[in-house]
Structure formats: structure tokens, C-alpha cells
């Protein structure tokens, strides 16, 4: 997979400005799925209504929308037919549209080259969205012009990185394959209990059932968005911390074990290379990239079972160094 072939139309980040004489929204969408939630009356519906008005009537609406991509609004009714017509666009969907929870919707957007901004408090378990792309809207400032107050709003991330102080007593790994093989070996040496959740939707059960004092969950942040709400809620009743890098494969790529300046440069801004039509979420891209970059070499990566070379002391230390750097803590000794 030559890196130069990964570039397509719908990639990277896109700045959006939406404005009338009373409100202005300025924000950036970074990935194929963005979720808007947060308090009532923060302006989610107003934003989407303004985009819908502009989409219908253009400049005659009196609304300004600035973006390098077409912004459209998808509504219930003929959403399937309408969605087929949208290409290379940023599609906004307001809350109250129950189709966003359907398998049909997930299927359709998986193979489209659009980005989606969805206002909902439902956890959309059919969609693999990132923990980094769940936002609230807040008022940043306001001013008065010709007697009218204009409010300036921005989006802000609802979840921030957590810091674990001290070593965990138990580690729960999202998957049951290569990542689990790796962390089970690491935990075994340190006398830490390591368990696989066999999928992200089981993590909350594992956390609830854990009897250990301090629990660390390691999961792929690139697709953990739907689980984030109940994960955070469990912090009320359990001493649990979530370490959510993009994915295990991303940690390996970032560790420097795989040579290549082009690769390291790409990892600084992967969104510019990840074609939304091809990769529903970023962790799938990182897996494909790692498999491709290591094929036919002694480092050959297989997601279903860890190549033991990654557990060789030097390689393991390089990955754990990246783990600790990303966690901003000494999660594991090296």
C-alpha cells in the first residue's frame, strides 16, 4: 500500500464557519464521524437549521456558510434516497432522527465518501466513532453590532485523556488477539492480572465484575466512542482508568520499530491520508498499514495472533515506551 496512493477527496480536517447576524459557529471536523451532544439549548439544532436553510436557499438565506466541502442536512423521510445523492460532502443530522441507530444507516455511510456530524445523546453502537470526536457546543464570546447581540460558539471535546497514578491491579484488554497477547505477556511479568473483554461492548461488564482495587482498561480509542458514556459513568462506582490510544497497531507504528521517515510524518497527521470511504474508522487503517509495512519481513504482523518477535526485549520496550508516553504515566515497567 504505497502511501501516495492513499490520498482521496474526502480526507483530512475541514474548517466550517456558519453565521447569521445573531450567532456564529466556527469548528473543525477531523474524521468521518463527529458526534455533537451536551446540554440542551447549547445551539446544536440552531446550527443544523442554519445549514439546512443555507443548503436550500444559498446566500439568499442571509446565512454565511464557509467550508471547502459542501455542507448538507439529512432528515428522516427519504433519508436513504437523499443520502445516495450526497458525495464528497459534510452531512449534518439533528437529534430526533432515529435512523442513525439503524444497521441500514451504518451500512450506507460505511461505503460513502462523506463526513457525518450527528447530534445525538444515544450511543450509536453500530458506528465506530472516535473518543476524540465527541463534542459539546459552548458560547465563546459575544458582541453587539447595530443593537443586535451576536454570540460566537465553538465546539469542545467532551472527553480528555486520563492519567493513571501508580500501577494497576488488573488490566482489561478490549480484544482477544494480538493486543491481548502482548499485554498478557507484559502483565504476567509484573504480576498484574490481565483479562480480555472479547470486544468493546463487553468492557463495562468486565469492569463491573472486577474485584481488584485499581483497574486499567486498554481499548482502541479510534472506535471506542459509543462505549465512552457508560465507561465514564462506571468511574462513579469503580476505580477504573481508560487508556485509549488510536489502536494497538498505532502504538507499534508510533514506537519506531518500523523504519521510514514518511511513515512517522504520516502518523503526525493521519487524517490527511485516511480515505473515509475505505476505512470506516482509523484503527482499521492502522492495522492495514502495519500489515502492509511488515509483510514478508521477520516483523510480519498478524492481528489474530501476535508474532513473537514483538515480545523480544528490545521491541517490547520500544512499544512500552510509546505506551507510557501516550498515557503520560509509567503504566508498565521496561
Amino acid at each position: 500500500m504505497p502511501l501516495s496512493l492513499l490520498v482521496s477527496n474526502m480526507i483530512g480536517s475541514h474548517e466550517i464557519l456558519v453565521r447569521n447576524n445573531r450567532v456564529q459557529y466556527k469548528f473543525t471536523v477531523n474524521r468521518n464521524i463527529t458526534i455533537l451532544r451536551g446540554d440542551s439549548a447549547s445551539g446544536k439544532t440552531t446550527l443544523i437549521d442554519m445549514i439546512a436553510d443555507y443548503s436550500r436557499d444559498g446566500a439568499e438565506s442571509g446565512i454565511v456558510v464557509r467550508c471547502d466541502k459542501k455542507c448538507v442536512v439529512l432528515e428522516r423521510g427519504n433519508w436513504e434516497r437523499d443520502l445516495k445523492d450526497y458525495k464528497d460532502s459534510i452531512v449534518f443530522i439533528d437529534e430526533g432522527n432515529s435512523f442513525v441507530r439503524s444497521y441500514g444507516f451504518a451500512d450506507m455511510i460505511q461505503n460513502s465518501d462523506n463526513y457525518y456530524v450527528i447530534a445525538t445523546r444515544d450511543s450509536l453502537f453500530n458506528l465506530p466513532y472516535s473518543i476524540c470526536e465527541i463534542y459539546g457546543i459552548r458560547n465563546k464570546s459575544g458582541n453587539r453590532y447595530q443593537g443586535t447581540k451576536r454570540i460566537y460558539s465553538e465546539t469542545y471535546p467532551l472527553y480528555n485523556r486520563e492519567i493513571l497514578h501508580g500501577k494497576p491491579d488488573k488490566v482489561i484488554i478490549e480484544d482477544s488477539n494480538a493486543a491481548y497477547d502482548f499485554f498478557r505477556a507484559v502483565c504476567g511479568k509484573e504480576g498484574i492480572v490481565c483479562e480480555t473483554a472479547c470486544g468493546k461492548s463487553n468492557i463495562y461488564k468486565c469492569v463491573q465484575n472486577a474485584n481488584e482495587e485499581r483497574v486499567l482498561v486498554i481499548a482502541d480509542g479510534a472506535a471506542f466512542g459509543p462505549e465512552m458514556e457508560r465507561a465514564m459513568a462506571l468511574k462513579r462506582v469503580k476505580n477504573v482508568v481508560f487508556f485509549l490510544p488510536e489502536s494497538f497497531e498505532w502504538l507499534i507504528l508510533k514506537s519506531g520499530l518500523i523504519d521510514g521517515n514518511e511513515l512517522q510524518d504520516m502518523l503526525k497527521h493521519p487524517g490527511d491520508f485516511i480515505k473515509s470511504e475505505r476505512y470506516f474508522s482509523w484503527e482499521r487503517f492502522f492495522t492495514a498499514l502495519l500489515v502492509d509495512q511488515t509483510k514478508d519481513s521477520y516483523m510480519s504482523y498478524n492481528k489474530s495472533s501476535l508474532n513473537s518477535v514483538y515480545l523480544h526485549e528490545k521491541n517490547k520496550d520500544a512499544i512500552l515506551k510509546t505506551v507510557n508516553e501516550e498515557a503520560d504515566a509509567e503504566l508498565f515497567g521496561r
Binding site: 451536551g38 446540554d39 440542551s40 445525538t120 445523546r121
Partner: peptide
């Protein structure tokens, strides 16, 4: 009015019906 407030007004005025209160933020 906001989606959350509309839902509160519905729940208050039509308590025999069941509404999706996930259209309400924590401030509701």
C-alpha cells in the same frame, strides 16, 4: 425552543404519554 425544553414541556403537559428524554441534556 431547544429540543430538551420541548421534551420537558411535553412530559409536563402530557404525562400519560412516554417521551424520549434523551433529547434532554443534563441541564434538564
Amino acid at each position: 425552543l431547544s429540543g430538551g425544553l420541548k421534551t420537558l414541556l411535553l412530559i409536563y403537559n402530557e404525562p400519560n404519554k412516554i417521551f424520549n428524554a434523551s433529547t434532554c441534556g443534563d441541564n434538564c
